[in-house]
Simulated assay, not measured.
Amino acid sequence: MNQKVVLITGCSSGIGLALAVRFANDEKKRFMVYATMRNLSKSKALVEAAGRSLGRTLEIKQLDVCDENSIKACVDSLPERRVDILISNAGLGLIGPIECQSIEQMKVVMDTNFFGFVRLLKEILPDMKRRKRGHIVVISSVMGIQGMLFNDIYSASKFAVEGFCESLVVQSMRFKINITLIEPGPVITEFEHKVYGEGLKTDLSKADKDTADMFTNIYLKNYREIFESVGQTAEDIAEHTLMIVTMDNPPFRHQTNMLYTPMTTLKYADPSGDLSIDEFYKMVFEHDKVFHASLNFLKLLRWRSRKSFSLEKSK
C-alpha cells in the first residue's frame, strides 16, 4: 500500500508535535510524515517523542511559513514535490486590550496565522489540482467562528482563514480536493503557556481603568480555570485529525470539544448574532457565580475521569 505524504507545519511543540508523532506512529503505516518547523534548533522534543519512527515514517525539515523561499525549498526537497495531506498548524497567539498592542504585533499574528497558510497553498495547491487529489487540513479554532473577549486579533486571523477556506472549498471540490477546518476549543500546550505568560506581562498603561480591570480580574483570572475545566490535550487534537483524514468523506468543519460546542451553536441559532453576544455578556458580567459553578463541576468530572489538566507546569 502506498503511503500518503503528510506535510505538517509548526511541529516543534504542542499540537504540531503531537500530530507528527501520531501520524508517524500510525499502526497501519499509512503515512510518510514531513514535520516542519521554523527553527530546527528546537527539534529536540520532536526527536525524542518520535523515537523509532524518525528516519522511517518521519523526517524533520525546515520551513518558515512567513518566508516564500523557505516554503518552496522544503516542497522542492520532497519526492516529486508530492503532498497528499497538508496540515497547516503553525500559528501565533495574542491577547489583551487593543490599546496596548502595536500594529506591528498585530501584523505579525496575521502574517503567520493567515498569510502563512496562504503562502503554503500557493506552493502546494497547483500540484494537488494537477493530480486531482489531496486534503488540506487547517488547525483553526472555535475563535474562527465565535469572537472571544480580548482575543480580537487572534480571532480576526482565524476568521480570515475560515472565510478564505469557505471561499476556496467550492473551487477545490472540482479538483477532488478536500478542505477541513479542525476547530479546537481550549487546548493545554506550550502555546497556551506562552500566550498566558505574555498576557500577564501586558503593559496596561494605555488602557482605561475599567478595561484594564476587566482584562486582569475577569479575563486572566478565568483563563486558567477555563482551560483546566474544558481544555483538551494536543494528543486529543491529533486523534481527531487522524480520524478526519482517514474518512472517505471528511467534513468541512470539525469541532473537537463537545463541551464547548453549545457556545458556538448559539451563533448559528440566531443569524442576527444578538443571542450569542447577549449570552456571552451575561455569562461574563451577570452570571459569574453560575459560570464558576459550572466550571468547577466540569473540573470535578475531569478529575474523576483522570483527565484534569493544569496550566501550571509540573515541577
Rank of each mutant, 00 (worst) to 15 (best):
R119Y: 05
K209R: 15
A269S: 09
R253L: 09
L220D: 09
R119S: 06
E239R: 13
L275D: 04
L204M: 04
Q255V: 13
V33P: 05
F280H: 15
P79G: 03
P184L: 03
L54D: 03
D274Y: 13
H135L: 06
G96Q: 01
I87Q: 05
Y268N: 15
C66I: 04
L40Y: 01
N217K: 12
V6L: 02
H292T: 13
L78H: 02
V137D: 07
G16V: 04
P97D: 04
M243W: 13
D288Y: 12
M1D: 14
L242P: 04
D76M: 07
S88C: 11
T211D: 15
V138I: 13
L7F: 04
L120A: 01
V109W: 01
E286V: 08
K72Y: 07
I139P: 06
P271G: 02
D288N: 12
K313E: 10
N2R: 14
N25Y: 05
F175M: 10
S43C: 06
M143C: 15
S77R: 09
T233N: 07
S294A: 13
R22W: 12
L266F: 12
I136V: 05
F117R: 08
M243S: 13
M110C: 07
S272Y: 05
M32T: 07
Q62W: 06
S41R: 08
L19C: 08
F150V: 02
V6D: 01
D111Y: 03
K176V: 10
F309V: 15
A234V: 09
P184D: 07
S272F: 04
N249L: 13
P126S: 04
Y34M: 03
G199K: 09
V290D: 09
K315C: 15
P79C: 02
D213V: 12
S41K: 09
F159P: 03
V21C: 04
E123Q: 13
K42I: 09
K206W: 03
V142M: 11
K313L: 11
P251Q: 10
N257S: 10
F117Q: 11
L92M: 09
A49S: 07
S305I: 10
G116N: 01
A24F: 02
N2K: 15
N249V: 15
D203H: 10
T241P: 00
V195I: 08
S205R: 11
M1I: 11
Y260A: 15
L54Y: 03
K72C: 14
S157T: 06
A35K: 05
I95Q: 08
T216Y: 11
D111N: 08
G185R: 02
I71K: 02
E166W: 03
E235H: 05
V187L: 08
V21R: 09
I136W: 00
D111T: 04
E162V: 00
S172T: 13
I226S: 08
L94R: 00
S41Y: 09
S43E: 10
K4G: 07
A293V: 10
I237H: 01
L125C: 07
A238Q: 02
M247C: 08
E192W: 09
M128Q: 08
I226N: 07
Y34T: 01
L54P: 01
E162W: 01
Q171V: 14
Y154R: 00
F23D: 07
K44S: 12
S141L: 11
E48N: 14
P79F: 00
E80R: 10
K221R: 14
S141H: 09
S13P: 03
Y154E: 01
D203R: 10
F114T: 08
R304W: 15
L19Y: 05
L7G: 05
